[in-house]
């Protein structure tokens, strides 16, 4: 039997964890220790009582590796739920970026015009710079950054991806 060649695919995985010290280190350590990719990772406390946090991790691998990643995450003691949003039906993914662009004259005008087209907000401005706030899919943010590179892009901060399944049910319901 030859091992079937497996395609590498990108998956967005949601992990609900106890909001306790070291839990992020456990998750990150698992990825680095076992040689899995992290394309993006976000974490924040999400429950009303601040007892659980939600980690959204974007990773890539063959189906066998993705299955391993989920099983490995699931066996960490403080992990409540692991959900593969890529496999389990439709989901929405968003990322937020803050983008600093410096320039004067035509570049400045063009940057502002493009920002408007991308529905980015100006959250800081001087007479020679802007900080834009932009949310959207990763591809949208990438496209915006590509355009801004020619117009005086200074620096960028991105949150990484957060995602939810569509529909009325939640992960822990």
């Amino acid at each position: 039997m030859s091992v079937p060649v497996q395609e590498i695919a990108r998956h967005t995985i949601s992990v609900v964890v106890d909001n306790e010290a070291g839990v992020l280190a456990r998750v990150i350590g698992l990825f680095s220790g076992r040689g899995y990719n992290i394309d993006s990772l976000t974490v924040a406390s999400v429950s009303e009582d601040a007892k659980t946090s939600r980690i959204t991790v974007v990773t890539s691998g063959t189906p066998m590796v993705i299955e391993q990643i989920k099983a490995q995450l699931d066996r960490l003691v403080p992990v409540h739920v692991v959900a593969d949003l890529t496999l389990e039906g439709p989901s929405v993914e968003r990322e937020l970026a803050l983008v600093k662009v410096a320039g004067v004259g035509e570049h400045r005008v063009e940057a502002l015009r493009l920002a408007d087209a991308f529905r980015a907000h100006v959250v800081d401005s001087t007479n020679s710079s802007f900080v834009f706030e932009l949310t959207g899919k990763t591809t949208k943010i990438d496209a915006f950054l590509n355009l801004m590179r020619e117009l005086g892009l200074v620096e960028v901060a991105r949150t990484g991806i957060v995602a939810l399944a569509r529909g009325k049910t939640g992960l822990e319901s």
Binding site: M64, E67, Q68, A71, D74, R75
Partner: peptide
Amino acid sequence: IDRSSINKNVH
């Protein structure tokens, strides 16, 4: 007993 042992090395 450990789900992560299944399909780890051998399908």
